[in-house]
Design a protein around this nucleic acid. Structure first.
Length: 215
DNA sequence: CAGTCGATTCACT
DNA sequence: GTGAATCGACTGA
């Protein structure tokens, strides 16, 4: 059950800041996905920052394309991409507009609508695995490319809404190299931009980038 | 226009 | 721990 005080919508100004400021501040916040069957809410426990055209790991690194266009738009909107031929992952766009920065939502704890999430996440062995990983999180929330561009800060009806939740104090936040990103994770990594709640059981395991073998 | 590979997950050994 | 699944976006010729 989510406390009423945790249900305050996050204002757009929240996202209209540098992505490295927003990313750790998102931990403990809540995202509500409204589906025809009912709401599914996740409390964010793990995120990654992607800093647009300056960041080789970002989809926006080589400029605007049809796929990543939303990241070049206003903050507070949802960027959804399709990957590995099967999965979707979701981001929240950060400001300022034109910067093309975003925060990948990597993991969280389902705090409402778990019975709905379990149906979509049939292979999950327990509830902690419902949203343990970016594609799992998107699957649990029934998010796909049709929701690309959704405004998570809009007033009125929205399929996805960001709520204040309860922010996590800085001394509870850990950070390290981003998962599965080419170029990240080596000695002297300049992108330790993965943030998670220390010791939280819903955080996904770290995995370095692995180039695909030829077949 | 063909080749490559991905901000991953799952089944299986 | 290893390999398969699966397809669209992007790249370079």
């Amino acid at each position: 059950m989510i406390a009423p005080s945790d249900r305050t919508p996050l204002p757009r100004e929240f996202f209209d800041r540098p992505v490295l400021e927003v990313a750790p501040d998102l931990l403990g916040r809540i995202l509500v996905r409204t589906t025809p069957d009912g709401p599914i809410a996740v409390r964010l426990t793990e995120v990654e920052a992607y800093d647009g055209e300056n960041d080789p790991g970002s989809h926006a690194y080589r400029g605007r394309t049809e796929r990543n266009a939303v990241m070049f738009g206003p903050p507070g909107h949802v960027y959804v991409y399709f990957t590995y031929g099967m999965w979707h992952c979701m981001n929240l766009v950060c400001g300022p507009e034109g910067r093309a920065a975003g925060v990948l939502l990597r993991a969280g704890e389902i705090v409402e609508g778990a019975e709905l999430a379990r149906i979509r996440r049939r292979s999950a062995r327990n509830d902690k695995e419902l949203a343990k990983g970016p594609a799992r999180l998107a699957t649990a929330l029934d998010v796909d490319r049709s929701l690309d561009g959704t405004d998570a800060c809009a007033t009125g009806e929205t399929p996805i809404r960001a709520l204040t939740g309860t922010p996590v104090p800085a001394d509870r936040v850990s950070n390290g190299p981003r998962t599965g990103v080419a170029g990240d994770g080596g000695n002297g990594d300049i992108h330790p931009w993965r943030f998670w709640i220390a010791d939280d059981p819903t955080v996904s395991p770290y995995r370095p980038h692995t180039p695909r073998r030829r077949r």
